[in-house]
Design a protein around this nucleic acid. Structure first.
Lengths: 481, 481
DNA sequence: GGGTATTTGTCCGTATGTATG
DNA sequence: TCATACATACGGACAAATACC
């Protein structure tokens, strides 16, 4: 950036000359690159073109740059030997990495650790199979969206809860697939579950800031509650989901749960527990956040109605997402508010803009209305079912009765319990030695000391069927060889 | 008009000197404008040039004007305390308007009020011209992004601060255009300014939850602060931006400002105020949120270095956005944190996912790296400049001295002050009757009772040049017909 | 791959204050 | 007081190079 002062005694052209020269010397403008054109710079500095020309001419004379009509002013190599021209950057890079390292133990955020381990058999469970995203269709839909009659809306501040068109599609879908009953006014689109949780933290804050969560449970939720000043009250999870007896004892009047496929244990809450939970909410005047994050992915079990669908008292806040079966990269989730919270939502959030890009809303809207979404779910579900079945089969075959499988028949992962009390650390380390990555359950415990050591998480979202069986064979060697 | 008497005892040059001086003091010759050139004046008065020069030299010495070769004698700001001149009788307005405060900022959420008024001349200022979005280019870039080597990342949870590639492009841009100095690690991408403010609310909460904001100022920011439990402390705004004297008195250690083009008054904070503000921050151990929301859109004024670029003590949190010159529908902004806050950011937000879809990040990244962004800015800036100039011209021509124009030469709107004390409600109502929509300033006042009634906001972001002149002609009839 | 639009440096004329004699 | 030369600054017209479609 060039800074000129009109009031100064030094002429304008000289100020420009000096600063550009300095930038060349400092290496801010690299050798071989072009100076900003005289017109552009003149306009941005509010001076005449000739003033800039004058400055550039001076640089020309002194051999810093070379001018060619029609192709601009090119910076010459002034540092003689190319060694010194690399120096300024080297120093800069040094400083950067130095300061970044001061960020202590906290994992570097700019680093995505999913891409480097191509050599592994990585049983991860959050990312999706890259082949499952409908790229060429997306391209077509983008074109359609951009040439649609309401394409001009990309230049506007849009509907604050999300485009009505899309909310209506979502409504149709959740009604059909999850029995959810609501009007479009109750739906709020937002950029991911964590943002959604932030919204709820605000809405529910008329109560005491206490929240009951599943233990173990989704860690990303806990972080949001904590940052919003909520006291987190862990409630243990059994084979029927959250422990209702414990919940009764808990003073919190807000609970966050994943009843359809508890994360990470995979427990499914039976219908009578669901009814009981709703009664609890009524009795305590409490609210329930039902996170139905991977409802699309069921393999051998009958669907159980969502809490929202059997709630008669407006106690359930329903969460859905496109992250688990379409793409996490979309950053798109939705909240379905109970009617009683809508006005409170408006009171607090009427001044907030929607967090999802309009174009993406339009695309997903087209995607759903043309039936691609339904087809996609069927396809992805089938694909994952195959992988799931093969994984379960391979485990049964190779690891036999040394493990119990928990939480299968849904989602993108399962839980392995080791009957001989092996510890997570050892299991993960041994697996890694054999080129296989499996995952701990520890991160999902609020009270880490309660975490049982003999559990391991295995995902099957990105491995091929062949890789799965080979991976398990390696694990057998690693753990019991 | 200057009168000289040859027979007088007072020398010619002194007669000229005195009369010009008087004209400057009386405001006949405005601050910033040029004196008649020595040649011209000499000729018209039939005196020698040196005589005029002599007179001008005297004015120079006394600080009334500044002389520079090639650019004449420029009148300086002699009325010193122009700080509060924008809203001089703020207190007087106290009595009139107390009740009208229920214009209630809260609007119906599901309703976008921009689309239904096609018949109006709508001088709105938030939405953009629909022709300015590069649709077909976007289509191509989408295709490129989807077939790029890292397209698989759409199925992953991605970099939490935003893709490094994009952060690097943004860095290059803000360094060049705004002098911002930072490393990519300091940049955080997020879905809009309000989300960004939410993040800062968390980061800065080690201090007391008090924030100083400009009054009038951006209402969307105030809402976020309130919802995050901050006490809002309005500080008045003058022609030089936020009132630093008042800020001194304010106990808050966090301030949110728009120094480049204050919203909505359009005031530009001069360099010496900027330095003073930074000193304030150091002295008080405070933080400054610099929202540079429409920095791209400058029309006739020289750029002033951003606060971030002259901050040596890590006191400035810089906000930028793509909403004002590319598309509000993208929902894309960025924060540039001071180094000292990066580790705190990691501590709180390392568990949060990025809120921008990967595909969009990739597209914008390509968009910028291929030079489209620079070109786009130039184009959009020129287009808006034309509209701006025409609006200003039309106002000057048709509304004449019944209004003062404030905050022009930048952004997408300007502020109209009515010299005869007409009220916002009346002005807006009358305009509407004639099919023209103009906007109130009331929504931007925390203490509505302080809001001066005789101001109106007019945007020029979506009207054609023809519509602008016609609209103004109608307004003339509506208001003064 | 060729035609058109845009971008770019160049050149020209004009206006201004400054310095000199 | 006048005339002249000079440095600085501004804006329009032109042709070559480039980018885009």
């Amino acid at each position: 950036m060039i800074n000129i002062v009109a009031e100064s005694n030094t002429p304008l052209y000289q100020q420009i000359y000096e600063q550009v020269k300095q930038q060349i010397i400092d290496g801010v403008i690299r050798e071989g690159s072009r100076l900003t054109s005289t017109r552009t710079l003149a306009k941005s500095l509010c001076v005449a073109r000739n003033t800039v020309e004058n400055a550039y001419a001076q640089l020309c004379l002194e051999g810093y740059v070379l001018n060619k009509p029609g192709s601009g002013f090119v910076v010459l190599d002034i540092h003689g030997d190319s060694l010194s021209s690399l120096f300024p950057n080297a120093i800069k890079a040094h400083q950067q990495s130095g300061s970044a390292s001061l960020t202590s133990r906290v994992q570097p955020i700019g680093f995505t650790d999913n891409l480097t381990k191509e050599c592994f058999y990585d049983f991860q469970y959050s990312n999706l199979d890259q082949t499952s995203f409908p790229s060429s269709l997306w391209r077509r839909l983008t074109a359609d969206a951009l040439s649609s009659f309401d394409a001009k809306r990309i230049s506007f501040y849009n509907d604050k809860q999300g485009e009505l068109e899309l909310r209506t599609e979502i409504l149709k879908y959740v009604r059909e697939s999850r029995g959810v009953r609501c009007s479009p006014e109750q739906i709020v689109l937002c950029c991911g579950t964590q943002y959604a949780l932030g919204v709820i933290c605000q809405l529910a804050s008329r109560n005491k800031r206490q929240i009951a969560v599943e233990e173990p449970g989704y860690d990303g939720a806990g972080i949001v509650f904590k940052n919003n000043g909520y006291e987190i009250m862990p409630v243990s999870v059994g084979t029927e989901g959250i422990n209702l007896g414990e919940l009764e004892q808990c003073p919190a009047k807000l609970v966050y749960i994943t009843p359809s496929h508890q994360f990470p244990t995979g427990a499914v809450m039976p219908i009578h527990n669901r009814l009981q939970l709703l009664q609890w909410a009524v009795k305590k005047d409490a609210l329930i956040i039902e996170d139905d994050y991977d409802s699309e992915l069921r393999y051998h079990t009958r669907p159980i109605p969502s809490l929202q669908s059997i709630d008669t008292d407006g106690r359930v806040i329903y969460f859905g997402t496109f992250s688990k079966s379409l793409s996490p990269g979309l950053r798109m989730s939705y909240i379905i508010l109970p009617e009683q919270l809508v006005s409170e939502y408006h009171r607090i959030y009427s001044g907030y803009y929607c967090t999802i890009p309009w174009l993406q809303q339009k695309i997903v809207s087209l995607y759903m209305s043309r039936g691609h979404w339904e087809r996609h779910i069927r396809k992805v579900c089938l694909q994952n079912k195959k992988r799931h079945d093969i994984l379960v089969q391979a485990i049964t075959e190779h690891l036999g009765d040394r493990v119990h499988i928990h939480g299968c028949n849904a989602g993108l992962h399962l839980l392995l319990e080791f009957t001989n009390g092996e510890s997570q650390e050892w299991l993960i380390e041994r697996a890694k030695v054999f080129g296989v990555q499996v995952y701990p359950t520890k991160p999902y415990w609020q009270r880490v000391e309660h975490c049982e050591a003999n559990f391991i998480l295995m995902g099957f979202s990105i491995l091929t069927e062949k890789e799965i069986t080979e991976g398990i064979r390696l694990l057998k060697d690693a753990w019991f060889g």
